[in-house]
């Protein structure tokens, strides 16, 4: 089964979700090529070539792919898909944007956010915010799949695949990029950080997130949030963890002032160790927390920072 994996990147560098999706792609059994579609994306393609298991890297370098516009990306992937039995992409906001278009063009159902490959045509995926797992079998025809990358280990970067240029496809010309506002942060990305500390409505303000940032700096952690904290304007939208935000599965997840609604749990309950700091001992978050601290966060979080500092973190 020949597989095409769509790389997640920002032209300059490759996201490690690509190497994780590679592990899912390889589980299908068969050679895996990687498509890097971007603008001035040679560095990302070179990084993709190092992913162990890559047959070759296809580089489509063209201005129309600079911002991963779904209409243009789908046109390209559909053109390349002819030679492949399956097309996979990380379930990032990019993959979620263009992959269903590819599936519709090829007239096959898409299988979203798989967490395991159970056979060449059989996959498991969460439904109902992860409160049920569904095992599905795809019909004959090409398989169009997005991968929940937190469920897969990253492939090694010991490979040396060749990079081959492919020409751009003719896009439908119905959309254009206008602008973007990207959050800048020195901290690790939510999706790949080993430690995540998230704040909820209990934080009371955006200012107070500095308390979490200080702890984050000691633990090299990423900072996340509940929907309530994002809706209240404490932090930008890309901080949101949950069913409809980002899914994370770090070694350590610290939930501060978060009650633990199912929609939030959906995005973090596969973390290895969960800590909850909440003043309400009845808060549902404690039902999933390995370590719970019933305390006022405005006292506990500065204390935590102080204790970490004392211990040399």
């Amino acid at each position: 089964m020949a597989v095409l994996l769509i790389a997640e990147h920002d032209n300059k560098s490759l996201k490690d979700s690509t190497a994780k999706a590679m592990t899912a792609a390889q589980a299908l059994g068969g050679p895996v090529d990687i498509l890097v579609a971007g603008q001035d994306a040679k560095p990302a393609a070179d990084a993709a070539a190092k992913i162990a298991g890559a047959g070759k890297v296809l580089l489509a370098d063209d201005a129309q792919y600079g911002h991963q516009l779904a209409e243009n990306m789908a046109a390209l992937i559909v053109e390349l898909a002819g030679k492949y039995d399956a097309v996979l992409s990380p379930a990032s906001t990019n993959g979620k944007n263009f992959m269903p278009r590819v599936a519709a063009a090829l007239d096959v159902p898409q299988i979203s956010e798989i967490v395991s490959v159970d056979g060449p045509d059989t996959f498991t995926r969460p439904i109902y915010a992860g409160n049920a797992m569904q095992q599905v079998q795809a019909p004959a025809g090409k398989k169009i799949i997005t991968v929940r990358t937190t469920a897969f280990k990253a492939a090694e970067t010991t490979g040396s695949a060749s990079v081959e240029s492919v020409s751009a496809a003719k896009g439908p010309g119905v959309s254009e990029f206008v602008g973007e506002e990207l959050s800048k942060s020195e901290r690790p990305e939510l999706a790949s950080a080993k430690v995540v500390i998230s704040g909820g409505r209990g934080m009371q303000s955006g200012e107070n997130f500095h308390l979490l940032e200080k702890v984050a700096d000691r633990l090299k952690a990423a900072v996340g949030a509940s929907r309530a904290a994002v809706d209240a304007g404490f932090v930008p939208n890309d901080y949101q963890v949950g069913q409809t935000g980002k899914v994370v599965a770090p070694e350590l997840y610290i939930a501060v002032g978060i009650s633990g609604a199912i929609q939030h749990l959906a995005g973090m309950k596969d973390s290895k160790v969960i800590v909850a700091i909440n003043k309400d001992e009845e808060a549902p978050i404690f039902q999933v927390a390995d370590y719970g601290l019933v305390a006022d966060l405005f006292k506990a979080v500065p204390e935590l920072e102080e204790e970490l500092k004392k211990q040399g973190y």
């Binding site: 797992m133 599905v136 079998q137 969960i274 927390a289 390995d290 370590y291 601290l293 019933v294």
Partner: peptide, 24 residues
């Protein structure tokens, strides 16, 4: 798509409560 089965996700078992930040 053929749904082969629908199952419960793995359950996390509840952990412990710690009393202090130092203990945590």
């Amino acid at each position: 798509l053929k749904v082969l089965k629908t199952t419960e996700p793995p359950k996390r078992k509840g952990g412990v409560k710690v009393k202090t930040v130092q203990e945590l």
